[in-house]
Amino acid sequence: MYGEFSLYGVYLPTLLAVMAAAYGVKSLVRFALGKTHFYAWVWHPALFNLAVYVLAVAGVLALLPEVARG
Protein backbone atom coordinates (compact mmCIF):
# COMPACT_ATOMS: atom_id res chain seq x y z
CA MET A 1 0.00 0.00 0.00
CA TYR A 2 1.04 3.63 -0.21
CA GLY A 3 1.02 4.44 3.50
CA GLU A 4 -0.27 7.54 5.13
CA PHE A 5 0.84 10.96 6.26
CA SER A 6 -0.04 13.05 9.27
CA LEU A 7 -1.91 16.32 8.80
CA TYR A 8 -2.13 18.07 12.18
CA GLY A 9 -2.32 14.72 13.95
CA VAL A 10 -4.89 13.18 11.60
CA TYR A 11 -3.53 10.33 9.51
CA LEU A 12 -4.66 10.51 5.91
CA PRO A 13 -3.94 8.00 3.16
CA THR A 14 -1.41 9.07 0.56
CA LEU A 15 -3.90 8.15 -2.15
CA LEU A 16 -6.15 10.99 -0.93
CA ALA A 17 -3.40 13.53 -1.61
CA VAL A 18 -2.68 11.91 -4.97
CA MET A 19 -6.34 12.09 -5.96
CA ALA A 20 -6.58 15.74 -4.85
CA ALA A 21 -3.51 16.65 -6.91
CA ALA A 22 -4.92 14.76 -9.91
CA TYR A 23 -8.19 16.66 -9.56
CA GLY A 24 -6.25 19.91 -9.80
CA VAL A 25 -4.45 18.69 -12.91
CA LYS A 26 -7.74 17.55 -14.44
CA SER A 27 -9.33 20.92 -13.71
CA LEU A 28 -6.50 22.75 -15.46
CA VAL A 29 -6.72 20.44 -18.48
CA ARG A 30 -10.51 20.83 -18.61
CA PHE A 31 -10.21 24.62 -18.47
CA ALA A 32 -7.59 24.66 -21.25
CA LEU A 33 -9.60 22.32 -23.47
CA GLY A 34 -12.76 24.34 -22.86
CA LYS A 35 -11.03 27.55 -23.93
CA THR A 36 -9.88 25.94 -27.18
CA HIS A 37 -13.38 24.53 -27.93
CA PHE A 38 -12.00 21.00 -27.97
CA TYR A 39 -15.21 19.62 -26.45
CA ALA A 40 -17.05 20.25 -29.72
CA TRP A 41 -15.14 17.23 -31.07
CA VAL A 42 -15.76 15.00 -28.04
CA TRP A 43 -18.71 12.62 -28.18
CA HIS A 44 -19.27 12.32 -24.41
CA PRO A 45 -17.55 15.10 -22.39
CA ALA A 46 -18.27 13.56 -18.97
CA LEU A 47 -16.72 10.25 -19.98
CA PHE A 48 -13.77 12.08 -21.50
CA ASN A 49 -13.27 14.04 -18.27
CA LEU A 50 -13.33 10.79 -16.27
CA ALA A 51 -10.67 9.33 -18.55
CA VAL A 52 -8.52 12.45 -18.15
CA TYR A 53 -8.88 12.15 -14.36
CA VAL A 54 -7.82 8.50 -14.36
CA LEU A 55 -4.80 9.37 -16.50
CA ALA A 56 -3.97 12.24 -14.14
CA VAL A 57 -4.11 9.90 -11.11
CA ALA A 58 -1.80 7.46 -12.89
CA GLY A 59 0.55 10.28 -13.82
CA VAL A 60 0.74 11.66 -10.29
CA LEU A 61 1.34 8.15 -8.93
CA ALA A 62 4.16 7.66 -11.43
CA LEU A 63 5.79 10.86 -10.19
CA LEU A 64 5.86 9.71 -6.56
CA PRO A 65 9.24 8.58 -5.31
CA GLU A 66 9.72 4.88 -4.63
CA VAL A 67 9.87 5.51 -0.86
CA ALA A 68 6.32 6.91 -0.79
CA ARG A 69 4.97 3.93 -2.71
CA GLY A 70 5.68 1.53 0.14
Rank of each mutant, 00 (worst) to 15 (best):
E4V: 15
Y8A: 14
E66Y: 02
E4C: 15
V67M: 12
G3V: 04
A17G: 05
K35C: 03
F38W: 10
H37I: 00
L61V: 03
T14A: 10
M19N: 04
V54F: 02
E66C: 02
L47V: 02
V60Y: 08
V25M: 14
G34M: 01
L61K: 02
W41H: 14
A40N: 14
L61N: 06
F5H: 00
L64P: 00
A46P: 06
A58G: 13
S6W: 00
V25H: 13
L33V: 12
A58T: 04
V57Q: 08
V54N: 01
A20I: 07
K26H: 14
S6T: 02
M19T: 05
L50F: 11
W43H: 07
G3T: 06
Y2K: 01
G3A: 14
A32S: 14
G24A: 12
L55K: 05
A32V: 08
H37R: 04
A58H: 02
L64T: 01
G59V: 04
V10K: 12
T36A: 15
A40K: 11
F48S: 13
V29A: 02
N49H: 11
G3N: 15
L50Q: 15
P65V: 00
V60W: 06
L7S: 08
G9P: 09
V67Q: 11
E4G: 12
A40F: 07
F48Q: 12
A46H: 09
L55N: 02
G59R: 03
A46F: 02
L15E: 07
L47Y: 09
Y11V: 03
Y39R: 13
L28F: 04
A21R: 03
N49T: 08
T14D: 09
V54R: 02
R30N: 12
F38N: 14
L28H: 10
L64N: 01
Y23W: 13
S6Y: 01
N49I: 01
L16K: 01
W41K: 13
V42C: 15
L15W: 09
P45H: 07
A32R: 09
V10L: 12
K26A: 09
L28W: 04
W43G: 13
L16N: 05
V67F: 12
L61C: 10
